[in-house]
Amino acid sequence: MNNTQHHKNNWVLGLTGGIGCGKTAVSNMLAELGITIVDADIIARQVVEPGTEGLNAIVKHFGTDILNEHGALNRSELRARIFSNAEQKAWLNALLHPLIRTKLITDLTNAQSDYVVLVAPLLFENELDGYCHRTLLIDVPKEVQIARTTQRDNISIEQAEQIIDAQMSREQKQHKADDILNNNRNLNDVKQDLLELHKYYLQQAKSTI
């Protein structure tokens, strides 16, 4: 990757894919192989936990009714506030993106495994691939994404299509990714291919650093 911003000596693999493509299943397989997983979605939740700078700033901006009865962020209320308000959405992104990046970099730097995986659905959209030495796209056809997402999240086909259409297109992701793993087949075949990629990444990590 060009402009790779290395952190310490850790070799970073960026793992991405659209909704319903099976990123979690693949990252779980890598975790079982002893690889540290840094998940951008989990970090996005951590930076707004009670007591954090992120949540304090949100409460100051939106008021205490943005919290639920337990004093944690009411996500559906926040989504409703920013959904059709570009200005509020921009304010929230300006607050959260730096906090998320700082924690991402810290976690990537502190990882002790042979290489570290950065999982992010918006890896390319948010230019997080700049932190990666190599990128892996978990790929399935759009109709598979829709079927899996409607089943898993109990949402309509229209809602699933809206989410998919809001993300970078499958073709663009395929063009940007260094490696592509077809996840629309028997899980054992996926595992076999992932093991081969894992061996390759171990070699790369050893030779690059």
Rank of each mutant, 00 (worst) to 15 (best):
1 M>K: 14
3 N>V: 09
9 N>T: 11
9 N>Q: 14
11 W>D: 01
15 L>I: 06
16 T>N: 05
17 G>N: 10
18 G>I: 02
18 G>Y: 05
19 I>H: 04
20 G>S: 11
20 G>P: 13
20 G>I: 05
22 G>K: 11
23 K>S: 06
26 V>G: 10
26 V>N: 10
26 V>Y: 04
33 L>V: 09
34 G>D: 10
37 I>S: 06
38 V>S: 01
40 A>E: 02
41 D>V: 03
44 A>V: 00
47 V>R: 00
48 V>F: 03
51 G>D: 00
51 G>E: 01
51 G>T: 02
53 E>K: 13
54 G>H: 01
54 G>Q: 03
55 L>K: 02
55 L>Y: 05
57 A>I: 02
60 K>A: 15
60 K>D: 15
62 F>E: 07
63 G>N: 08
63 G>T: 06
64 T>I: 14
65 D>N: 15
66 I>D: 05
67 L>I: 12
68 N>Y: 09
68 N>S: 07
69 E>D: 15
69 E>M: 12
70 H>V: 07
74 N>I: 10
74 N>Q: 13
75 R>H: 08
76 S>Y: 09
77 E>N: 15
78 L>S: 11
78 L>Q: 11
83 F>S: 13
84 S>C: 08
85 N>T: 02
89 K>F: 01
89 K>L: 13
91 W>R: 00
91 W>G: 00
92 L>S: 03
92 L>M: 05
94 A>R: 04
97 H>E: 00
97 H>Q: 01
100 I>R: 02
100 I>T: 03
101 R>H: 02
103 K>P: 05
104 L>E: 11
105 I>P: 00
105 I>S: 04
106 T>F: 08
113 S>D: 06
120 A>L: 01
120 A>M: 02
123 L>C: 09
129 D>I: 03
130 G>R: 08
131 Y>A: 10
131 Y>I: 07
133 H>P: 07
134 R>A: 14
137 L>W: 09
140 V>K: 08
141 P>Q: 09
142 K>G: 12
143 E>M: 06
145 Q>G: 01
146 I>Y: 02
146 I>G: 04
147 A>W: 03
147 A>N: 11
147 A>T: 11
148 R>M: 07
149 T>L: 10
150 T>K: 07
150 T>M: 14
151 Q>C: 12
151 Q>Y: 14
151 Q>W: 08
152 R>K: 12
152 R>C: 07
154 N>T: 14
155 I>M: 08
156 S>C: 10
157 I>P: 14
159 Q>E: 15
160 A>I: 09
161 E>A: 06
161 E>Y: 04
164 I>C: 04
166 A>V: 04
167 Q>G: 01
167 Q>R: 06
167 Q>N: 00
170 R>N: 15
173 K>H: 07
177 A>L: 07
178 D>P: 10
179 D>R: 08
180 I>N: 07
181 L>F: 12
181 L>W: 14
186 N>I: 01
188 N>A: 14
195 L>I: 14
199 K>I: 04
205 A>L: 03
206 K>D: 11
207 S>L: 12
207 S>N: 15
207 S>W: 12
209 I>C: 15
209 I>Y: 13
